[in-house]
Lab assay of single mutants.
Amino acid sequence: MTEYKLVVVGAGGVGKSALTIQLIQNHFVDEYDPTIEDSYRKQVVIDGETCLLDILDTAGQEEYSAMRDQYMRTGEGFLCVFAINNTKSFEDIHHYREQIKRVKDSEDVPMVLVGNKCDLPSRTVDTKQAQDLARSYGIPFIETSAKTRQGVDDAFYTLVREIRKHKEKMSKDGKKKKKKSKTKCVIM
């Protein structure tokens, strides 16, 4: 069974824990209790493949930012979460993405942009803004509501699919490099 290491990042209060708990335990946590770091595991079937999701729910508070490099190193894919009623959390996505790329030393890291709290009427981040940002990053965008469960499975499952595509691409690139290195030079 394939294991996928997913990391949920975003500013404090955007609903990272609520999304994760909704996926794992099928219930909505409405009281806000700032996370330092929590880890969850769940076995699911995605596109006919049974897999184990190892999900790291991270601290959004700035005082825990020193811990970010460590979990970013171990993560295979990242859910970059903002709240649709919090423009600052949307603007912060850029910083999370840049930090992930720096730590992973790669421009090509599996990510999904997630606009959470889409059940709320007080939207300050337009869907088109988020779609445009995701398009500019070359990553999928999904709106979710941890409260109603809308888009929750889709967000995590899409990230797994992005990781699969990335692994497939990397193995193809690896095979191309191996083929090239088999060419021999004969000096007579």
Rank of each mutant, 00 (worst) to 15 (best):
T2A: 09
E3D: 11
E3M: 06
Y4K: 15
Y4L: 14
K5R: 13
K5N: 03
K5C: 02
L6M: 12
L6A: 03
L6I: 11
L6W: 15
V7G: 02
V8A: 03
V9P: 07
G10A: 15
G10N: 01
G12V: 01
G13Y: 01
G13K: 07
G13D: 07
V14M: 10
G15E: 01
G15H: 02
G15L: 00
K16V: 15
K16C: 15
K16H: 15
S17C: 01
L19N: 14
I21Q: 06
Q22D: 15
L23E: 14
L23Y: 06
L23D: 02
H27Y: 05
H27M: 15
F28A: 02
D30E: 05
D30S: 07
E31K: 08
E31T: 11
Y32W: 01
Y32S: 04
Y32P: 07
D33P: 15
D33E: 03
D33N: 01
I36V: 06
I36L: 15
I36T: 00
I36Q: 00
E37F: 03
E37L: 02
S39K: 00
S39N: 10
S39I: 02
Y40T: 00
Y40I: 02
R41T: 00
K42T: 04
Q43P: 07
Q43N: 06
Q43L: 08
V44D: 05
V45L: 06
V45C: 09
I46T: 10
D47Y: 02
D47P: 03
D47F: 02
D47V: 02
G48K: 05
E49H: 12
T50R: 09
T50G: 08
C51N: 06
L52T: 06
L52D: 02
L52V: 09
L53C: 05
L53F: 10
D54Q: 02
I55F: 11
L56T: 09
D57M: 00
D57P: 00
T58C: 13
T58Y: 04
A59I: 11
A59L: 03
G60Y: 14
Q61P: 14
Q61Y: 08
E62W: 04
E62F: 03
Y64E: 10
S65N: 09
S65M: 03
A66H: 11
M67A: 05
R68I: 02
R68F: 03
Y71V: 14
R73T: 12
T74D: 12
G75K: 02
G75T: 12
G75F: 04
E76K: 12
E76L: 15
G77K: 01
G77Q: 00
G77M: 09
G77P: 02
F78V: 12
C80R: 01
V81Q: 09
V81N: 04
F82D: 09
F82C: 13
A83F: 03
I84W: 13
I84H: 14
N86K: 09
K88L: 12
S89V: 03
S89E: 14
F90P: 02
F90W: 06
F90H: 03
E91P: 01
I93P: 02
H94L: 14
R97K: 14
R97D: 06
R97C: 15
E98K: 02
Q99C: 12
I100V: 12
I100F: 05
K101D: 10
R102E: 11
V103A: 13
V103R: 13
D105N: 10
D105Q: 12
D105A: 10
S106R: 13
E107A: 11
E107H: 07
E107V: 12
V109R: 12
V109I: 14
P110G: 02
P110Q: 03
M111T: 03
M111R: 01
V112Y: 09
V112F: 05
V112P: 03
V112I: 13
V112H: 00
L113T: 02
L113I: 10
L113Q: 05
L113M: 11
V114K: 00
G115T: 07
G115D: 03
G115E: 03
G115R: 02
N116H: 14
K117S: 14
C118I: 10
D119L: 14
D119M: 14
L120V: 13
P121H: 11
P121L: 10
S122V: 07
R123G: 13
R123A: 12
T124A: 11
V125F: 09
V125C: 10
D126V: 07
D126G: 08
T127W: 06
K128D: 06
Q129F: 14
Q129G: 13
A130P: 08
Q131V: 09
Q131A: 07
Q131W: 09
D132C: 05
D132N: 07
L133I: 06
L133N: 11
L133K: 04
A134L: 05
R135P: 03
Y137S: 08
Y137L: 13
G138V: 02
I139S: 05
I139M: 06
I142S: 10
I142F: 07
I142A: 15
E143K: 03
S145L: 03
A146L: 14
T148S: 05
R149T: 12
G151Q: 13
D153C: 08
D154V: 06
D154C: 05
A155I: 07
A155N: 02
A155V: 09
A155H: 11
F156P: 11
F156T: 13
F156V: 15
V160H: 03
V160Y: 06
R161P: 01
E162V: 03
E162F: 04
E162Y: 09
I163G: 09
R164E: 11
R164M: 12
K165F: 09
K165P: 04
K165T: 13
H166V: 09
K167W: 08
K167L: 06
K167R: 04
E168A: 09
K169H: 03
K169Q: 13
M170K: 11
M170E: 15
K172P: 13
K172F: 12
D173L: 11
D173G: 12
D173H: 07
D173F: 13
G174T: 07
K175F: 11
K177N: 08
K177R: 05
K178F: 11
K180N: 12
S181C: 10
K182Y: 14
K182A: 05
T183H: 02
T183D: 14
K184T: 04
K184E: 10
C185G: 09
V186L: 06
V186F: 14
I187E: 14
I187A: 13
